[in-house]
Design a protein around this nucleic acid. Structure first.
Lengths: 354, 354
DNA sequence: TTGAAAGCGCTAACAG
DNA sequence: CTGTTAGCGCTTTCAA
């Protein structure tokens, strides 16, 4: 037979409240479970008075319907997995404020639509492990924060018909659906602003092996060309996003080279590192070197100097990611979406007019 | 009868992969579902060769067991709800880096132990709504980040036997279980260091209506007394943690009063705000005013000046919160736990020896 | 308007 | 060692 001993509340002891279920409410209300089910779901089929009585009883007893059972029966599920890649080699946690902001925005968007969020990390070298959430039925789909360098794995996941949306940039031959900021625009806005400030030796900091950085660099290069300035590869620094890994690289760069008067950093955190390194090398910001960050993280306005930075539309991104996933579940196949970005002017590369 | 039309994949269209289930594997392997179940759970009761074959088939087809069904049958659940309060009035998201770090640490601790994390927000005025996750069976327990000013609601939840652990401070007459940093110690370490630096007019910034801030202030006051310095209420500023709400308050304070030469801030974000306000008022850090922050957020080392701050043990906190919840589920009732903190010396209030 | 009964995908006791 | 069977808590068809 069945009746396995419950495992989780293996409580040998105290008044471990047995979770209330419909049958309890039914008994107390003197009706059948079907009626309780109907009443609680607001069915018209049940007498208004009974419905009222059952609803009140349930509320007063603090009863909540068991969603596991409900979902099984209904073959539905209102849970979305949000997955943040981490660097397994350095065992680095994701502490980048921008990624965390996006997670927050997604949480809001999901809540507004009545969905729950399952949050987890995945090894950035094995993004495909994220499909587990769908395969196991724990989630109806996956939102992945960042495509890293595994475009291929993502394509494979999409080919397997995994409901998936990725925060990242549009790529050639892309089977999966992505939502991202306009990186080319961002890169060019940043560089153009620095050039307009009269700077001509503009460095670029970011690892161009990542698609988003690659595109930002394109925008940067394009802006330089517009201003008739040559792109100097010696002014490009391939620093990773993780501060612990980037610190030495950035410092070394600043002690080695003093022949730049502006810099585009691919995240606000990198911008902070750069400011420290510049100051350590005896150079001022924005005096000697004007600087533009990227992301407009919540703290960007409170740094010293406050960061001029490319603003990414975090709240909109959350909504867009969620909406895109949900429409995918309704059978629509949307192409990649690119959201506008703009330059937020602060002190690290001030408005020339001011 | 039953057989309701599946709802979520309401896909009218394409090859929406029907999720694989045990019966499919069973058919393909030419065995019964029970055998598949046993094989996949590594039961000794099944022929090693069959077990192998079934396992491989499942893997090759990318089959994952349906956890909803499994949990229902087994009456178990490996999901924990992590709930972050937000200020409903200001509709402020939680962007405080410290809270986000704790969430990350909890995620790690849960993953290590084979649990999933359901992340959500709750109105800080109705912390009791968090019990929904347990009542509905979506989670086996709740970890709440911050007790705010609703000690009473938390006590009520605990009285209802909700498995609950709260990040926060120990309070008198506490029925629920909390884990928190040693706030009295933190407050006194911060103040003592500033006094040792020879400063005597030490301001305190933080809303003492929050239990944690209240305790930090006790430590602060205690340190002042040790040094024979009177506590001056005029040097206490009740600034909230949200930067948007705190900015004006902090600036106003700095323009109004110039009679302090040191300050203890109850978060690193407040410290950043304070630095800006001080500079706007023409005062330098740490020259005119030495400053100690609180939390040691990931970016604290990269600010200007790098923040001397009270380090909170985030990773340990995550582990401790999770362990405490799990032991509660095993019937143990643990008291509140207080984790040690220490002072991390950086430039905003440098080591006098250096 | 209500109740009885079947079954969502899975596990485990029981019988071969 | 393997298959048959009952049932986890819920929704819904069908019959009353």
């Amino acid at each position: 037979m069945s009746k396995p001993a419950p495992k989780e509340p293996a409580a040998p002891s105290a008044g471990e409240q047995r979770r209330l279920q419909m049958v309890d409410i039914a008994r107390l209300a003197g009706v059948s479970v079907s009626t309780v089910s109907r009443a609680l779901n607001g069915s018209e089929l049940v007498n208004a008075e009974t419905r009222q009585r059952v609803a009140e009883l349930a509320r007063s007893l603090n009863y909540s319907i068991n969603f596991g059972a409900r979902n099984l029966r209904l073959q539905e599920n209102k849970t979305v997995a949000v997955v943040v890649p981490y660097d397994a080699k350095s065992r680095q946690h994701i502490s980048d404020p921008f990624f965390l902001s996006i997670v927050g925005a997604i949480a809001d968007a999901l809540t507004d639509r009545g969905y729950d969020m399952l949050l987890s990390r995945v090894d950035a070298e094995h993004l495909d492990l994220a499909s587990h959430w769908f395969d196991s039925g724990k989630a109806i789909g996956v939102i992945l924060i960042g495509q890293w360098r595994h475009h291929d794995q993502l394509n494979e996941m999409a080919a397997r018909k995994l409901p998936l949306v990725v925060w990242g940039s549009e790529m050639p031959q892309q089977l999966y659906c992505s939502v991202g900021g306009d990186n080319v625009l961002g890169g060019s806005l940043a560089a153009r602003h620095l050039l307009q400030l009269g700077r001509s030796r503009v460095a670029f900091v970011g690892d161009a092996r990542l698609p988003e950085v690659w595109l930002r660099r394109q925008g940067y290069a394009q802006a330089l060309r517009e201003f008739g300035v040559d792109v100097d590869p010696a002014l490009e620094l391939a620093a990773p996003f993780e501060p612990s890994a980037a610190t030495d690289i950035v410092h070394e760069f600043c002690t080695r080279r003093r022949d730049f008067d502006a810099v585009v950093c691919c995240s606000d955190v990198l911008a902070l590192l750069m400011i420290q390194a510049l100051r350590a090398a005896g150079r001022s910001v924005p005096g000697d070197v004007a600087l533009v960050g990227y992301d407009d993280m919540p703290l960007a306005a409170y740094c010293d100097p406050p960061l001029t930075t490319v603003h990414q539309p975090v709240a909109e991104a959350g909504v867009e990611l969620v909406e895109t996933l949900l429409s995918q579940l309704h059978g629509e196949r949307l192409g990649p979406r690119t959201l506008p970005v703009y330059l937020k002017l602060r002190e690290s590369a001030p408005d020339p007019a001011a």
